[in-house]
Structure formats: C-alpha cells, structure tokens
Design a protein around this nucleic acid. Structure first.
Length: 842
RNA sequence: GCCGCGGUGGCGGAACUGGUAUACGCGCGGGACUCAAAAUCCCGUGGGGGCAACCUCGUGAGGGUUCGAUUCCCUCCCGCGGCACCA
C-alpha cells in the first residue's frame, strides 16, 4: 500500500534548510557567467498573494534553478512595490498608518512566497516605501530637474472625483478612472511633468535592440504613436480689425499630397480659445461653441458619433491655388495633437468627409488608386473631373494624383516631396506620446523633493538633504480642493529655501506609483549602497552582456529576462525605459535599455471562466492550495495549466492530476531505497531519457513548461509500464529524471535525492544533465504506410535500411496489399523512419 | 476602423522543417483490490457504420497548391488583447 509523500514535512524541511544556509544568495563572481532574471515585484495588497503571481514567479524560478544547474551565476531577486492607494484608502478607513499596514502585508507576502520555495536571493530585497530606497527615487527626480526634464506646468489634468486624485493620461481607460471606474473630469492644476516626449524617438527606435514578445513591442509602438508628415501655414483673412494675411494658421498633415483636395480648415476649440485670448473677437455662436466644447469632458467629446462645429467666418488662403477656404472650429480636432488645426480633405479622410457631408462643404477627389482606373483617361491624357463629381467612397490609400494641376499623375509619395518643396512645408514628426504627469495629491508616496520660495521660485532640495521623508499625519483624506494631505502639516511644509535661505514651502504633492517601480531592478544589483543608487561596477556585472569589454563604461545588455503581466507592458515598461535611458545619458547605468528580453504570462481566471474577484466569491487562495497539495504540486500545476502566455481558467481537478503525478514519482522511488541495484538499463530507456533531457531543457528555455511537464509525466508512465513487465528502469536513469524535475518540484526532488544519494551531494548543486546525440536516434521506428496519402497500415522498420527495403516491407502489410491490388504504382515517396506513400492510379 | 494573437474531442491543451491529428492532464465508462467507500492500479474513450478485419467523415467556413495540409496561399466568419476623431 503506497503512502503519498508528506508535503508539509518535506516543504518545511527544505525551506528551512535553504533559509538557514542562504543557498540562493549570490555575489558578483567574475569567474562565472552571470544571468539576471527578473519578475515584477508585487504590490503587497491586503488580500495576499493571488494565484496569478506564482505563475510568473514559478516560471522564472524554474529557469533560475535550471540556469544555476548550468553553472551560471543567477541573480533572481524579489521586493515590494509598497507605495500605493489601497494602503492609503485602508488607512483612511481604519486610521492605521499606511506604513503599519504595508509592513504587515509585506510580511504576509513574504511568508506566502517562501511557502512556495522560490530561489530568491532575499538578502537583496527592496521596498519602495523604505526611505533608504526612495532617497534614490528622489535623487533621480532631482537629476531630471537638473537636466530640464521635469517642469511644473498648469495642465488640464484628468481628475477622478472619487479618488480625489489627478490621473496620468495613461490611467484613464475609456474616460474612466482605471482604479475605481468613476467618470473622469477635466481640471486645471499645477503639476510636475516629466518630459518623456524628449525620448520618444529613442524609445521607439531602440525597440529594435531588445527582444520583446511581438504584442508587447506593438503596444509600445502604438503608445508612442509616431506619424511622419509636414507642417505648414495658411494665411488668414477676415479677422475683424486685422490686416489680411498678417496672421496664419499652422496645420500638420501626413498627406500633403492631398492638398488640392483641402476644401476647408478646422481648428480645435483649444486653438480657437487661444485666438480669443489674444484678441480675436469671435461671434456669439462661435464663442458659445468653443466654451461649450471646452467644458465637456473628453469622454463626451469622443463618445458622440455626430461631428459638430461652427464656421468662424475667417478665411484661410490655399498656398497653391490662392483660393479662400472657410475656417471652422470643431471638437473632432484635438488641441493636444499636432498644431491643433488641420486642413480638411473630405475626399480622402473619413472624418473630414463626415463633417463635409453634414455641413455641405465641397469634396474634391485628388487621389486615385491607379491611373488606369481613372475615368476620363483618353490616350493617356488626364482630364479634370468636375468638382461635384467625386467618388462616393472615401479613398484613404496611396495612389496617383488628379485634379492637382502641375502635380497630376505623380505618385502620392513623390507628390508629398514635390509639394513640400513648392510651398516650403517642413518635414515634421508627431508623436501621440504626451509628457508624463508626475504629481499626485496623495500621502502615501515619495515626497517630491522641491521647495517653493517666493524669491527663487521652485528650488530643488539639496542632494545631501535626501531623503525628504514622509511626516506622520493624523488624517490621510485628500481634500476636495485637490491638495495633498501633506499640505496640512505646517511644520513639515514650512522650511527654508536651499538657495537663498529665506522662508519657503515644501512641495506637498507626491510621486505616482510608477516612480519606485521604474528603477527597482537597478537597486537589486547593490541594495545596501548608501552613496549611489547602485555602484557602476555591480551594475556592469549584472547588466552587461557576457564578453563586454570592461574598460568601457557602456555595454550592450540589460536584465537578461524580465517577465510580468500584460497590464504593465505599456506604461511601466515605457516609464522605466525612459528613466533608464536618462540614467544612461548621465552616466549612472551602463546600458541603453533596462531589459534585454521581456515576456508576459497569461492571466489565470476562476473555474467559472471569469476574472477572480472577491465580489464574485471565486477567488482561489494560494495558501489553501499549498496546504492541501503542497508547494511542488502548486508550482507544477501552475505551469502545466496551459501555454504560459495564454489566459487559462483554474481547475481544481487538474491540480489533483498533477499531485497524482508527483505521488507516482514518489512511489517509483520507494522500491530503490531498499534495493538500489534493482532495474536494468536498456537502449529503449536510454533513448527515452536522452529525449527527455533534451526536451525538458529546451522547453524551459522557451517557457513551454506545459509540454515539459507532459513529457515528464509520459516518462513516469513508461517507468510504471516497465515495472509491470518486471524490467524496472535502473536507478541512475531515475536519478537523472529527478534532476529534470528538480526546478519544478524542488522540495520533493531534494528529499528523494537525499534518501537515494550514496554521498552527501545536494540536488541543487548537481549540474544539469546532458545527453548524447547518438542516443536520440531510434534503431527502429513505426512507419506509416499510405496509399494516395491515406493511412492504410504501419510497419516497424530499422532506420538504417534501404528505401527498397521500406517498399518491400510496406507491401507485405496485408491491408496495404489489398489497396495496391490491381493498381499501377506511379510513384513511391519514402521518408525513412517516418512514412512511405504509394501514389497509385485510381 | 487599424494593429497583434488565436479558433483542434465533453474540458485545459499536444503535433518537429508540410509526413500516423487529438500527446499529457481532467472528466467519463468498464474492470481489479475492498464487507463497502475513498485512495491506488489496469483497460477503454473524436463522430458515423460494421460481429470483426476494417471503412468513412473529421483541426471555424469555402476554395487552392501538394503524393500528402492543423501546418503554406487566397476569400470569409468568429473570439481575445491593444490602440482609437492622433489628421
């Protein structure tokens, strides 16, 4: 009667051992090849670990343990992204200090992570809310200030009336607050901004140099949103009290080739408002429209399908035809993109078309897909179409010009160049990317280390004065006026100016959550450094690719492999790439990119196929799974559940299948503890083992864990079959198997290894197994026999015989013979070891 | 609308470079063990036909290339993720 393994005893035995002996602590060992593997550090929420966390952590842990066995010096750290709203909201509710709550939550997370047996180097743990850490977050901010990449500006910000917090552009999803779902309002506020747009080009171009999963790369590209086009001006006429042609309106277009199709100009309400501010006397209807649309929230502006606008009465002069085009103001043109004004080409742009049709503005076709398709082409001569004679559908593609005077019949790309020359338009690159709103009116974040002085304006805190620590407060409630709770602590706010020594006030805004997580991977390299955020020497060791010349300060590389959730592949990744590039520019880090390779795991859904949530009551608690099945089962199940990058539902019955497999491994070894010499080595066993060694190693490197586990299950099933036939596999084979299973089930394999090892070796010190290419070869194989591509039988063939032997053997198969009877064989295809196909006449 | 990914049994999913579709796991059916149940072990398990040997259909739909297509090409349908009045 087999007894299942006692996971509780085994798990705690080995976890204690690893902790006591610091098994996974690493140092900068120049003799070894380094590998830096990183997983996103968690936000230590009150709910504890979600089953989604271990998917990423276990995957990287398996790789870390495997690379370690390969002889590499593996840095695999863990920490906590500890500033954040939930802790602050909980503090508001209960009056407990966020730091107290955070500390408790971190302890719980640490316990849970340790219960899963991860090979983290805990000595390098970082916590973003720790002053010794955020000192350096503030230091980076000061460097940004010094290099003019941080500035304070009055900006329309997205304001969440429920959280009472200004949101970054990126935190607004469908016009709603990303956190609480409340509709976002627009508010004007003085905000610290970071000039990420200065890095747009490099953030885009350098995607070439890193290995990101395609969907991640596309997301980065979409977000940066580069468009290449031209910028030029239309002279304005009809401004009351102003000379004609004295003022102009600048437009940006990617389709300068369609300029002859421009029949009107549209300016955004923001641009029109600006004109009013500098003295334009707009009519009442125009004024009302502008004021109205500016008041509207962005959500309403983008939700309405119907386009609206009003004619300003102004005229813009077409630079090529001298025609006067009407100037409209409409909210489908955005104030925050390009010049805030466009030339409208209703024949070749869907939005302009919709607007033109509604307001009965002219439409002129100026591009056709190909010259041959042009109606009215006679003997190669182009005829001008009547203005009323435009095609019914918008054609937005490339092609050739018509109705464009001197530029007729040119290709669109050629026309863009020629027209730009003709009107003196300058090439312009536009990005969707906006500067990063860096201020939060909140307590539980890094104080922004700036001081406002009446005389000297904004002055940075001196570096020696860092960190600017968070003071104790009584109340954490943000105020409806939009001020941070810090503003109420007068003794903290009131300070002296670092520049003139006069009375001054501290900035009371704090940094967003993204700040601490933008550079944490650097701190892991040198977590206790009090002089720098991390020493260049250590950064070079962990970030530079193997073989980088050590005399140079820069190198290729980055974190070797970074895995995390899809929800962080746009913003977190972009922000930390921006900070890293900046730190590279000021000589603090050796690489241009932070992460050489980035992958993302799929979500784990509840058994019902829905997202796990407390309100649905379908949350799986990792503690319970570990208690019932053990850490190894939990780990292996999370990887076996499905392809790593796919979203998959949790399945409790599936877990017992994995536990059954591990029990079978346990039982399989039972007999050998008594009788180590039992079993026989066979060539079949050798071949299977060699294949398994190859497959498991390759699958781990490719993050195809589900198939690696399946292959190990198959091997154990084979071992069981061998028991049944009274020719059990030999112990050395099983021990090699154990080495392969080791990264998935580190506790169970450590235990079995200890019980079976005839010396004092520890399984995690054993090298990764190797295999002989020759052992992979099958001496014989089951070969499919087809007739006209349809399977009619199989024959077992030695692999080293001639094709003729294949033909003969195949024909001897009775069913095959039946199908060949009376037919003429036209052709025979033989793929040794695979199949043979007879092509016969019907 | 644009970009990216995908569609295979009752379910999660395998399938190398175009070469025996459904590995592995779950579930289900049957058997062994047991007083019984659980656990464990063994056998079976895509649909249809046939006592069987076998035959036939079958990887979202339709077409194509090929001796041979889940895999390559074309057209279309559906799902997921991202972006979205970005000129």
């Amino acid at each position: 009667m087999p007894i299942p393994f006692d996971h509780k005893a085994i798990d705690s035995k080995w976890q204690e051992y690893w902790e006591r002996t610091n098994t996974f602590q690493v140092t900068e060992d120049e003799q070894k090849k380094k590998t830096y593997l990183l997983v996103e550090f968690p936000y230590p929420s009150g709910e504890g670990l979600h089953v989604g966390h271990p998917r990423s952590y276990t995957a990287m842990d398996v790789l870390a343990r495997k690379r370690r066995a390969d002889g590499e010096n593996v840095l695999f750290p863990m920490g906590f992204d500890a500033f954040g709203l939930p802790a602050e909201n909980y503090a508001i509710k209960t009056g407990q200090h966020p730091s107290v709550i955070t500390k408790k939550n971190i302890e719980n997370f640490r316990r849970q992570l340790k219960s899963l047996g991860y090979a983290f180097d805990w000595s390098r743990e970082v916590i973003t809310s720790d002053p010794s850490y955020y000192k350096w977050t503030q230091w980076i901010f000061l460097q940004l200030v010094k290099h003019d990449l941080a500035y304070k500006a009055k900006a329309t910000i997205n304001w969440c009336p429920s959280c009472k917090i200004g949101l970054a552009h990126e935190e607004v999803v469908d016009g709603k607050c990303e956190r609480c779902g409340t509709a976002v309002e627009q508010r004007e506020k003085e905000q610290w901004m970071l000039k990420i747009t200065a890095y747009a080009e490099r953030l885009l171009d350098d995607l070439e140099t890193v290995d990101y999963a395609p969907r991640i790369r596309t997301q980065q590209e979409n977000w940066i949103g580069k468009s290449e086009g031209a910028e030029f001006a239309f002279k304005l006429r009809g401004i009351p009290g102003q000379e004609n042609d004295k003022h102009e309106v600048r437009v940006f277009t990617t389709r300068l080739d369609t300029i002859y199709g421009a029949t009107f100009i549209v300016v955004s309400p923001e641009t029109a408002k600006f004109w009013m501010d500098i003295g334009w006397q707009a009519g009442d209807d125009v004024r009302n429209y502008i004021v109205d649309s500016l008041r509207k929230r962005e959500l309403e502006r983008t939700e309405t399908a119907e386009k609206t606008g009003v004619d300003t009465g102004l005229k813009a002069v077409h630079p090529l035809t001298d025609e006067e085009l009407p100037v409209w103001v409409a909210d489908y043109v955005l104030g925050s993109y390009g010049t805030g004004a466009i030339m409208a080409v209703p024949a070749h742009d869907e939005r302009d078309r919709a607007f033109a049709e509604k307001y009965k503005l002219p439409i002129i076709d100026v591009v056709v897909p190909s010259l041959g398709q042009l109606r009215g082409v006679t003997d190669g001569e182009l005829q001008t179409l009547e203005l009323s004679d435009h095609s019914p559908a918008v054609y937005a593609g490339e092609g050739f010009l018509i109705n464009s005077k001197d530029f007729d019949s040119l290709s669109t790309s050629e026309a863009r160049k020629k027209i730009a020359e003709a009107i003196g338009a300058k090439e312009k690159v536009q990005y969707k990317l906006r500067d990063w709103v860096f201020s939060r009116q909140r307590y539980w974040g890094e104080p922004i280390p700036m001081v406002h002085c009446q005389k000297c304006d904004w002055v940075p805190v001196s570096e020696e004065a860092l960190p600017v620590t968070l003071p104790e407060v009584e109340r954490y409630q943000p105020t409806d006026t939009g001020e941070s709770p810090l503003a109420a602590i007068r003794e903290w706010v009131e300070t002296t100016c670092p520049s003139c020594g006069g009375a001054a006030e501290r900035e009371t805004d704090t940094m967003p959550n993204w700040a601490g997580s933008s550079w944490y991977y650097l701190r892991y390299a040198d977590p206790k450094n009090e002089k720098e955020l991390a020493s260049m020497k250590k950064l070079r060791y962990w970030l530079c690719q193997a073989g980088s010349p050590s005399q140079r300060t820069t190198c290729d590389g980055g974190v070797d492999w970074y895995n995390g959730g899809m929800e962080h592949t746009t913003l977190h990744l972009l922000y930390s790439r921006f900070w890293h590039k900046f730190l590279f520019d000021i000589g603090v880090v050796p690489t241009a990119e932070p992460y050489a390779k980035r992958t993302s795991h799929g979500m784990i859904l509840a058994e019902d196929g829905q997202k796990m949530s407390k309100s649905r009551g379908n949350v799986v608690n990792p503690d319970e799974v570990v208690a019932t099945y053990g850490a190894d089962t939990m780990r292996t199940y999370e990887l076996f559940i499905g392809p790593f990058a796919d979203t998959v539902p949790w399945n409790t019955q599936g877990i017992s299948g994995v536990r059954r497999f591990l029990d079978r491994v346990w039982y399989a070894f039972g007999a050998y503890t008594e009788e180590p010499n039992r079993g026989v080595a066979s060539t079949e066993t050798n071949r299977r083992l060699a294949k398994l060694v190859k497959k498991v190693g390759e699958d781990i490197e490719l993050f195809r864990f589900n198939t690696a586990v399946a292959a190990m299950m198959e091997f154990i099933n084979y071992a069981y079959e061998q028991e049944a036939t009274k020719t059990p596999v030999d112990l050395p084979t099983l021990k090699t198997f154990l080495l392969l299973l080791r990264p998935f089930a580190p506790h169970l394999t450590a235990e079995l290894w200890q019980q079976l090892a005839d010396d004092k070796t520890l399984i995690w010190d054993m090298p990764w197994p190797t295999y002989n290419e020759a052992d992979l070869e099958d001496a014989s194989a089951v070969v499919a026999v087809q007739v006209n591509g349809k399977l009619r039988g199989t024959v077992t063939m030695a692999t080293n015989v001639s094709e003729e032997a294949y033909r003969i053997a195949a024909r001897e198969n009775s069913n095959v013979a039946r199908w060949l009877e009376g037919k003429t064989i036209r052709k025979t295809i033989v793929r040794k070891g695979k199949l043979i196909n007879f092509v016969v006449e019907e």
